[in-house]
Design a protein around this nucleic acid. Structure first.
Lengths: 154, 154
DNA sequence: TATTGTTATACTCTATAACTATA
DNA sequence: TATAGTTATAGAGTATAACAATA
C-alpha cells in the first residue's frame, strides 16, 4: 500500500477515495481480469495471436470437426462474433472451414501451421499463468480456482 | 457440472473439451469478469449508464475537485479515454468541468442530477454484487476478495 | 418453418499521436 | 520545455438484425 512507500518529491497525487468499490468482488474481478488480459496480450503478441483468438484456436485444436454453433456456444460468443474471429484465423491459415454433410454448416479443423502456433501459445499460456498467480500459495490457487468456477458455472 | 444434469432431449451438443483452460486462473478470471460485466451492464442499462462510466462517476462523487489527470491515473485510464467519458457524463449533466486556478486544467464535480443518479446506481451495484456472489458463502467471499486483491495489488 | 452462417452496422472501451493553450 | 486537455483515428471485442442457403 501507499502507507509504506515514501512519497517521491516530484509529484504527489493523494490517493483517491474508492469508497465501497474496494470491497466489491465484481469490481476486483474486473481489475484482475483486465490486468491479466493485458499481460496475456503481451505474451501472445510475438505470436501474432490476439487473446480472444487463442481461446478459439484452443477449442478447435481439442475438438476438431465441430460446427461454428457448437464452438460459439462453448466459448460463450455470438455466432456472428465467431464468424469474424474465424475469418482472422483462417486468413492466417491456422484454421480451416471444411464443408460437412449438412451443407448449411462447416466443420472446423486446425491446420499444421495452426498446430505449431498452438503449441507455442501453450508455452506462453503457462508462463503467463505462473506470472499472474505468483503472489498466491499453491493452496490459495486451488481455493481461488474453485471459487471462480462456482461464480461462473457453465 | 454436466455430470449431474440430465441431458435434455431437444438438442445435445456434447460438451467441448476445454483442455488445460479449465485449470487456469487467468482463463476463469476472464470468464467470471465477462459474465459479471455483462450482468452489470444490464443492471445499469435502465439508468442509461454504461458500466465504465459508473466507475468514473463514482470516483468524481467521492473525490470532488480533482483534475482529469488525477482521475485518469486513479482509474487506470489514458487521459484521452477519460476525455471521451467525461464528454458523455457532462453531456448528460451528471458531471461538471469547472475551470480552476491552473487554467490548463479543470476541476471535476458531480452535479445534483449526477448525485441522484449515483445513488440509484449504488443500489444497483449492491444488487449486482449480491447476485453474482450468491453461490458463495460469506467466508468464501472474504477469501475470494483477499485473493483477488493479492492478485492485482495497486 | 427453423437453423447455419454471413453481412452490415453499431456500441463500448481502449490506446497513440498530433494538436492547442497554458505554465 | 513541460503539462493538461482535446481531437482524430484506430483497433479489439462484442452484439443485434436482416439476409441467403439449406434442412
Amino acid at each position: 500500500m501507499t502507507l509504506s512507500s515514501r512519497p517521491r518529491p516530484e509529484k504527489i497525487h493523494a490517493a483517491l477515495d474508492m469508497g465501497a468499490l474496494d470491497h466489491l468482488i465484481g469490481y476486483q474481478l474486473r481489475r484482475c481480469a483486465l490486468r491479466s488480459q493485458a499481460r496475456f496480450a503481451e505474451f501472445m503478441a510475438p505470436l501474432g495471436l490476439a487473446p480472444g483468438l487463442f481461446g478459439v484456436l484452443h477449442l478447435i485444436a481439442l475438438n476438431p470437426g465441430r460446427t461454428q454453433i457448437d464452438l460459439a456456444q462453448a466459448a460463450g460468443l455470438d455466432r456472428s462474433t465467431l464468424t469474424l474471429m474465424l475469418d482472422q484465423l483462417s486468413k492466417k491459415s491456422w484454421v480451416e472451414r471444411r464443408p460437412g454433410a449438412d451443407r448449411r454448416s462447416f466443420n472446423l479443423y486446425i491446420t499444421p501451421e495452426g498446430q505449431a502456433l498452438w503449441q507455442a501459445a501453450l508455452t506462453e499460456v503457462e508462463a503467463h499463468e505462473a506470472e499472474i498467480t505468483a503472489p498466491l500459495s499453491a493452496d490459495a490457487k486451488i481455493v481461488l480456482l474453485n471459487a471462480l468456477k462456482r461464480l461462473a458455472p457453465d
